[in-house]
Design a protein around this nucleic acid. Structure first.
Lengths: 246, 246
DNA sequence: TGTACATCAGTGAACGCGCGTTCACTGATGTAC
DNA sequence: TGTACATCAGTGAACGCGCGTTCACTGATGTAC
C-alpha cells in the first residue's frame, strides 16, 4: 500500500545513491574535465568498489549522458525561472533577465557549462534523450520573442528594414519560427538566432579565457551586448532604466 | 661554412622529425581529442620508441603548446591572407573575406579549432608564448576596422547613435582601441568586440553541433550574420553585390 | 504474522589494456686540432 | 685530410600508476503465499 506515493527503502536508497554518484562525478568534472571523468575515481571517493557503479549506470557514457541532461536542465530551468520572475515586465526586460540568469549559471558551473557548450567529448555520441533538455533555453528565448512582437509599442522598424534572408536561411527561419516563435517575422527570427549564438559565444569566450586581459571583468561588456542584441531582435525599448540591475 | 644558411644533416633531420611528430599528433587530435593525446601513441605511429620523443619535446604539455601555437598561427595566417588578397576592396568586403577565411579554416581543421577555441584542456596552463599568436585574428579585424572608419563614404550613423558604454567597458574599449584600432570611436570598438565574439560563437555552435537540425547547413546563416555584424561595427555599405561569393 | 523464495546492491579479484617519464646504453654525426 | 673527442638521436627496459568492464559471490531487502 501507499505504492506510487511511498517508495520502498530500496527505491529510496537507489535514488539517493544515484544522486550522490552524479554529484561526485560533477565534482570531478571540475578537477579533471569530462574526457577524464573516471568511474573508478568516483567510486573510490564514494567509498564504493568500482564495479558497484554498474548497478546504477550501465557504462561510463551513460553517466556522462546523465550529467549532460542534468546540466541542460539546470541552465534551462535557470532561464525559465528568471523569465517567469519578470513576468509582465516587457519582453526586453525578460530578455535581460534570461541572459543574466544564463550567465550566472554558467559562471557558477563552469565545468558543467563546458560539458554542454564546449568541445564535444571525443568518442561520445549524445543520445536522442539530450535533445529536448538542450532546447530549453532556446524555447525560452523564442517565447519572449513572440511576446515582444505581440506587445504594443514603437514598431521596431530597424529589425524589419533588413535585406532578404539569403538562400536556405529563409526556409530554415520559417521552420524555427513555426516551432518556437509563431507570428514573428523572418528577419527578427534570424536576428534571434544571431543573438542566441552570441549569448553563448560570449559566455564561452569569457569562461574559456579568450577575453582574458581584453574585457575583464566582462560584466559591463555582457550587459551592453545584451542591449545591442535586444535591438537586433527587435524587442521594444522599455520605459524603465536601460541598465540591468546586474 | 654556409653556417646559418645551410643546416647540418642533424639540424635538418631534427626540423623534419619535429614536424612529423606534430603532424602525427594533429592526426591523433582528430581521433581522440586534446585531453587524450598520447605521446606513446604518437611515437608508435611514427615507428619510434616513446622515450625518443623526449629529444624533441620535454613533456606532453610542451607538445600541446606547440600544437596550440601552430593552430593560432594557421588561423591567423588564413585571416591575414584573405584580407590581403582583398586589399583595396573596402573594409566591408575585407571583413567578409576575413570571416569566410576563418570559417573555412575552422571547418577544415575542426579539431585544431576545438583545441584553441573549445573547452580548456584540464590541467593545462597555456604559457605566455601562445598570447601573440592567439591575437592575430583580432589584430586583422582591428586593422580593417580602423581602415573602414578612415574610408570616405556614408557615415555609419547607426553605429554611433548608441547609448554610452556602461561602467568599466568605456575604459576597456579605450585600451583595445589604442592597441589595435586607433582612431575608431568607442561604440564601434564595442561593436567589434561583439562581432569578434559572435564570429567565433557561431563557429563553435556550428562545429560543436549546437546548430544541428536548426540551421544546417549554416553557410547562409553565417553570411547573413556577417553582414549584420558589419552594420554593427559601422563598416560602410559597399557598392558591390551584397552577397559574398561563398 | 511467518516462512520461502526472488530480487537486488555491493564485494573483491581478475582481465587486458594504456599512460608519462626516467635511465643507462649504443652508435651515428659534428667539431677542433 | 685524418684523428680524438664531444654531442646528440634513438633504444629498450623499467617504474608506478590508472582505467573500464566482467564475473561469481554474499547478504540484505522485498514479495507471495
Amino acid at each position: 500500500m501507499l505504492a506510487g506515493v511511498r517508495q520502498t527503502a530500496r527505491e529510496r536508497a537507489r535514488a539517493e545513491i544515484t544522486a550522490e554518484i552524479k554529484a561526485e562525478a560533477r565534482r570531478q568534472l571540475a578537477a579533471a574535465g569530462a574526457p577524464q571523468l573516471s568511474l573508478r575515481a568516483v567510486a573510490r571517493e564514494l567509498g564504493m568498489v568500482s564495479s558497484a557503479l554498474y548497478r546504477y549506470f550501465p557504462s561510463r557514457d551513460d553517466l556522462l549522458t546523465a550529467l549532460i541532461i542534468d546540466a541542460y536542465d539546470a541552465i534551462g530551468a535557470a532561464a525559465e525561472k528568471a523569465v517567469a520572475a519578470a513576468a509582465g515586465a516587457g519582453a526586453r526586460r525578460r530578455w535581460r533577465a534570461c541572459c543574466q540568469a544564463v550567465r550566472q549559471w554558467a559562471i557558477g558551473n563552469p565545468h558543467e557549462y563546458a560539458l554542454i557548450y564546449g568541445s564535444p567529448v571525443p568518442g561520445y555520441q549524445a543520445p536522442q534523450a539530450t535533445v529536448a533538455p538542450a532546447a530549453r533555453v532556446a524555447m525560452v528565448i523564442g517565447a519572449l520573442l513572440a511576446d515582444g512582437w505581440a506587445e504594443p509599442g514603437q514598431p521596431p522598424a530597424r529589425a524589419l528594414a533588413r535585406p532578404a534572408l539569403p538562400g536556405l536561411l529563409a526556409e530554415q527561419v520559417r521552420l524555427v519560427s513555426a516551432a518556437i516563435a509563431p507570428g514573428v517575422p523572418g528577419p527578427a527570427i534570424a536576428g534571434t538566432l544571431i543573438a542566441w549564438t552570441q549569448l553563448f559565444g560570449m559566455l564561452s569566450f569569457e569562461l574559456f579565457g579568450q577575453l582574458k586581459g581584453i574585457v575583464e571583468p566582462a560584466d559591463d561588456f555582457f550587459a551592453y551586448a545584451v542591449e545591442q542584441l535586444a535591438d537586433l531582435i527587435g524587442l521594444p525599448d522599455p520605459p524603465d532604466p536601460p541598465a540591468p540591475p546586474a
